[in-house]
Design a binder for these strands. Structure first.
Lengths: 131, 131
DNA sequence: TTCCTTAATAGTAATTATTACTATTATTAG
DNA sequence: CTAATAATAGTAATAATTACTATTAAGGAA
């Protein structure tokens, strides 16, 4: 039986308000500013609880820390390889799932599509040069 | 200037021969059986070197250890959530990249699509029950 | 071949992201 | 109000990976 907690409410509100796809560490910094007694373990536990309950979404980032998203409408992410920011897009992966089912016999239950590129902001900072 | 090394050759041959998408730990176990003096750090360093040079591919697994693939032809992976095995499939993500470019203005430079499901083997072991 | 420069190694320590543990606090049913 | 126990704070532990350092060994030049 899940019980109300002030900490969980603050964590949820923080992720719902800061739609910057924060990492657990970033969520911790944000909530810690509001309430310095909240511990990192509590942040992790509640981010996972809230993800499981569907209140928020967990975004797996290859080679980096997981990010969390207060926007639960169907959408996907592209990560900036420079600043780590995640931008949203929408796309229907139904045809992909069908093709994979035919090719492998495996029914895809979960889909983690992570695209990477350089966002507008960082491209401006880099000023044309590309490495 | 990269110099020949017996260890790197063995690691490359191991990944090319064992097309089971092994993790670094699994590669270490395999090469260690052939040559017990090879260290884990050497395995990691060379797997990364070989990935960068394009001789093998690194497969990011959400919430798990990276896997390595000796098959460098264009293809993608679906991971079994039960045993961690990776199966191959092929798919053209050109339309996805175009759509994302139009929606976000970001040109996708790298694409990490990871699908998850339960493989045939594990489905048989589970024997119909699903939880 | 022998010598020398330095890339690569083995082994260990450190780091990062995350989970586990435990005594204490606080929610909520009765 | 009180008891049962979910949730917490704080810390320790874990897992995957990288960094560090003294030693080894490629491979080009004498």
């Amino acid at each position: 039986m899940t019980r109300y907690s002030r900490q969980r409410e603050l964590i949820l509100k923080t992720v719902q308000t800061n739609l910057i796809h924060p990492t657990a560490d970033e969520v911790y910094a944000l909530v810690h500013a509001q309430d310095p007694t909240i511990s990192l373990g509590t942040v992790y536990r509640n981010l996972n609880l809230l993800s499981q309950s569907g209140a928020i979404r967990k975004v797996a980032v290859p080679g980096g820390a997981d990010r969390f998203d207060g926007n639960t409408t169907p959408h996907h992410h592209i990560i900036c390889t420079f600043c780590g920011m995640a931008a949203d897009y929408s796309y229907d992966f139904g045809k992909l799932k069908d093709d994979v089912l035919h090719q492998t016999g495996i029914e895809c239950s979960h889909l983690t599509v992570t695209l990477e590129g350089i966002c507008r902001n960082c491209r401006e900072k880099l000023g044309g040069k590309n490495g």
